[in-house]
Amino acid sequence: MKSFFRMTYPYILWIAVFIVAPMVMILLYALTRTGNSTLTFQFTLENFARFFSDATFMRVLLTSLRIALLTTVFCLLIGYPAAFFISRLSERRQTMMVLLLTLPMWINMLLKTYAWRGILLNFDLASEFKVFIGMVYDFLPYMIIQIHTSIAKMDGNLLTAAYDLGANKWKTFLKVILPLSVPGIISGITLVFLPAVSSFVIPKLLGGGDYVLIGNLIEIYFLTAGDWNFGSAISLIMALIIIASMWLTRKLDRNAQEE
């Protein structure tokens, strides 16, 4: 089987250059001071200190987490019933529905967001609400498809067995379907929450300039303020938060599966 493993060598080289090296670059910038060249490193933690000591940045971070959480919850609330109803349809209609849900995912996200901007221009709404609509819109199909896949995979016999054992519809749903769809829910949450935390295009286009999320901060520091060191530090902080929450969800997932 050694000969098979050799097939991964090019890929290992690839991840060293295109995945590991970029992360090292960000770390390097985050830990150094503005204005120094790559030859004379001056290590410092001041970029991180600056972030955590400023109430504004902490508020931006909390707002980002709040809106991402809200988006995830609403995608789940809207998406779960939808996924469940789809799974009750005939097989042909299920394919059709999944297709209808996939199609808009192929249309450029920026174009869809611009369309929402046009639609929302007709209404006088708070910017946070506009951003919220845009985010739920963008991520809902991912949630529905993930949950639907996990429900559709279920063994039909399980449900028949539950009925045979005298469980009513509600009981079957609570005791059989819901627990078995947990992996789908978790991967749905991951697919919604992670990109929602870091999104910067939707808040920028729908929220207007006074709606700043952590992704916008990074963009501002890289492109407007030109402070790459601080921008890298913010990127790193965000990446760490996301990787930590990802690790946590995966752990929960494993526990749930073991049960």
Partner: peptide, 10 residues
């Protein structure tokens, strides 16, 4: 730009 972020965030 840092002060401006603060203005916008009220």
């Amino acid at each position: 730009s840092e002060l401006w972020i603060k203005v916008k965030l009220h």
